[in-house]
Design a protein around this nucleic acid. Structure first.
Length: 682
DNA sequence: GAGCACTGC
């Protein structure tokens, strides 16, 4: 927040450099702060939460769990921890921990709170996220990501070093939050002195209260949970609906942008669409409009905003709108939770969102476009009222709004739970079907996960974590099939290679695919330099090795149309994994170019994901009566189709797509997974 | 022929 306070407007800013330390994740340190120019104490006094100091402290004293409901801008994430610290709740060498769903929130909040406490971050106030631990043994307030707390529980199941746990952004209902809530509920029963504070924007708090209320009887005096509402800082937002439903929300959103523009109402516009494709379409339409309307006094400045943009491109949406322009940001759901763009007066909401939904039948994630929930619609509308009264144009009818569900189903209900089961087992949760989930996931998803964990040898036939093997699998920050691969690679003597493969498989998109002109073909040609007959996964290894050997890595990436930021991330992940391998005693050894060993090792992790070429010309998975296709981004798309492949992932969009595959033979499958395959099935 | 958003000592 403080980064750009004293920058001269004429200075050319190197946005890209400044952000690179946050490793390419989407990031906004531009959280809106209307009191930026006042001194810190005055700023703090103006926050709505400050008025509730006595209530917060009283309720914390009296109740074990406090649910604090308040919309954005109330100051709860920064102030509550400090109130508790100031009144001495950190006695006996215990500290306060606050979990955040995103790394950047943890870092910026800790930096801010340290500033308010008049210290540097890393002393009294610190943060801890993957790759970046900025805490000391005497740190009293720790802002950490949710995964870190879960990890701490594996070594310290009762979290005895904390006197207060604060869970932030509970309304987002991330997979991790839901697991943490279940685990902390168990801890609360065993540690009556522990305090839990739940911070949430709009959400059904009666459900939360009864979930955390450990009162065994009916007497309200014995309640252990309380709710406190705090108002936020938000300007009124007028809502407009369509009279008739629209057949095409992308076109409708562009029409609405132009209507706002032609009516000459001032203010920037934020448009919510569902994906990259739609966003590019919309940006192009506005560009076309600009070409035809060069005489407009104020010009439209279309800006895309989605997760696949490079750092520099992401930051364009945050730059102040130049004089003579009206900024129109076309965004996915990133703009609903992860980033805040100031200066937005008009919000256009298409009413849909793309969600990942786990399908236990195929063991695949499906990406589906569904209507948003009322909570999302309200959240999106709120983006218009951050610094002045705003307007939201909903591209659906009022009746359609009334028919929306109250909230999006929490992530835990629609996720592959394999890793969750593994982690819960590692925290000594024996009966996972009886775990106190706030929203219990479908039983079939849980059974799928348990079957998977069993097939990977992480649990024995009694459902206990296998000694060493399963325990190490749970400790590694990788999907279970990848953890298995890494452990096996130690035994097979190819871990130096596998650790690179795994680092690459964690990336979202190592390739750059240009959209226009002859660069499309040039990129394809350059990518084919890395192609090998064994398939995508070894191609990734080739790329990683090339990247490491290259002298000027950035230049090298540009030449081969590869994503520099992503490859740097792969390198960080590799270093991190090598560290963990030393700790967990996985031998680090190279097979010195013997591809057969690498292939065999990969197969020992992915054996469950086998597909064969059906006589119809498409692929069929063993056990799934469904056509599978190579993902269009697969480099082996145009060469001869192999008879048998293993794949890392299955993704359902318009079809069931195989992502990252490797050519295998049935005999190899029998060799690496005799417990899973028998010759007749192959 | 095409992928929402995050995260892991």
């Amino acid at each position: 927040m403080t980064l750009y306070r004293f920058v001269n407007p004429d200075e050319k800013l190197e946005y890209g450099e400044e952000k690179s330390k946050f490793e390419g994740t989407i990031s906004s340190s531009f959280v809106y702060n209307p009191y930026m120019f006042l001194d810190l104490q005055t700023q703090r006094n103006k926050l709505p939460i400050t008025k509730y100091r006595n209530e917060v402290l009283y309720l914390c004293e009296k109740f074990q769990t406090l649910i604090l409901v308040g919309s954005t801008g109330s100051g709860k994430s920064t102030q509550v921890s400090q109130m508790l610290l100031d009144c001495g709740l950190c006695k006996f060498n215990k500290s306060i921990v606050i979990t955040e769903p995103r790394k950047l929130s943890a870092i910026t909040l800790a930096t801010r709170v340290a500033e308010e406490q008049n210290t540097n971050v890393g002393h009294t106030v610190g943060y801890s996220v993957r790759f970046d631990n900025c805490c000391q043994p005497d740190t009293k307030i720790k802002y950490i990501t949710e995964g870190i707390l879960l990890n701490e529980m594996m070594y310290n199941p009762l979290l005895v070093n904390y006197s207060v746990i604060i869970l932030d952004e509970i309304h987002e209902r991330s997979l991790m939050t839901d697991i943490l809530m279940g685990l902390i509920k168990k801890i609360l029963k065993k540690r009556p002195t522990l305090r839990l504070i739940i911070l949430s924007a709009t959400m059904d708090f009666t459900q939360l209260k009864s979930y955390f209320n450990l009162n065994p009887g009916n007497n309200p005096d014995d309640d252990t949970a309380a709710v406190l509402g705090v108002e936020g800082k938000c300007y009124p937002v007028s809502i407009y609906y369509l009279n008739e439903p629209t057949p095409n929300y992308v076109d409708e959103s562009i029409n609405t942008v132009l209507k706002i523009h032609q009516s000459r109402k001032p203010g920037d516009i934020l448009v919510f669409l569902t994906g990259k494709e739609e966003i590019m379409l919309a940006v192009n339409s506005i560009d076309d409009y600009n070409i035809k309307h060069t005489d407009d006094k104020i010009k439209l400045l279309p800006v895309p905003m989605h997760g696949m943009l490079t750092n520099d491109d992401q930051l364009k949406a945050f730059r102040p709108t130049p004089r003579g322009y009206r900024k129109v940001v076309f965004a996915t759901n990133v703009a609903e939770t992860s980033v805040t763009i100031s200066g937005i007066v008009h919000v256009i909401d298409c009413g849909f969102v793309k969600l990942k939904w786990f399908n236990y039948k195929f063991g695949a994630d499906s990406l589906i476009t569904v209507p948003i929930s009322k909570a999302s619609a309200i959240q999106r509308a709120g983006r218009a009222g951050r610094d002045q009264p705003g307007k939201v144009y909903r591209l659906y009818t009022e009746e359609a709004y009334n028919n929306l569900t109250n909230a999006t189903p929490p992530e835990i209900m629609r996720s592959n739970l394999t890793d969750v089961v593994l982690q819960l087992k590692a925290i000594y949760i024996d009966n996972i079907l009886r775990f106190p989930f706030l929203s219990p996931p479908p039983a079939k998803n849980l059974l799928y996960a348990m079957e998977m964990v069993k097939a990977l040898d992480a649990i024995d036939k009694y459902g206990n974590l296998t000694k060493d093997f399963g325990t190490i699998m749970a400790e590694l920050p990788l999907p279970a099939r990848h953890s298995r691969m890494l452990i096996k690679s130690g035994e097979m003597g190819c871990s130096s290679e596998i650790v690179c493969v795994l680092a690459m498989l964690q990336l979202q998109e190592p390739f750059i695919f240009p959209k226009f002109g002859n660069t499309i073909y040039k990129a394809k040609k350059m990518h084919r330099n890395f192609e090998v007959s064994e398939g995508d996964i070894l191609t990734l290894l080739n790329i990683f090795n090339g990247f490491q050997k290259s002298h000027n890595r950035k230049q090298w990436c540009n030449r081969f149309f590869l994503n520099y930021n992503e490859l740097c991330r792969a390198q960080k992940i590799r270093t991190h994994l090598l560290d963990l391998m030393k700790k967990t005693k996985i031998e680090i050894k190279s097979c010195k170019g013997d591809t057969r060993i690498v292939v065999k090792c990969i197969a020992s992790g992915l054996f469950k994901n086998a597909a064969y070429l059906h006589y119809t010309g498409v692929y069929r998975s063993v056990g799934i009566e469904e056509d599978l296709y190579f993902h269009p981004k697969s480099l082996l798309h145009y060469v001869n189709q192999p008879q048998w492949v293993l794949y890392d992932e299955l993704l359902e969009t318009t079809k069931l797509y195989i992502k990252n595959m490797m050519v295998v033979t049935p005999s190899l499958l029998l060799e690496v997974a005799p417990h899973y395959y028998s010759s007749p099935t192959l």
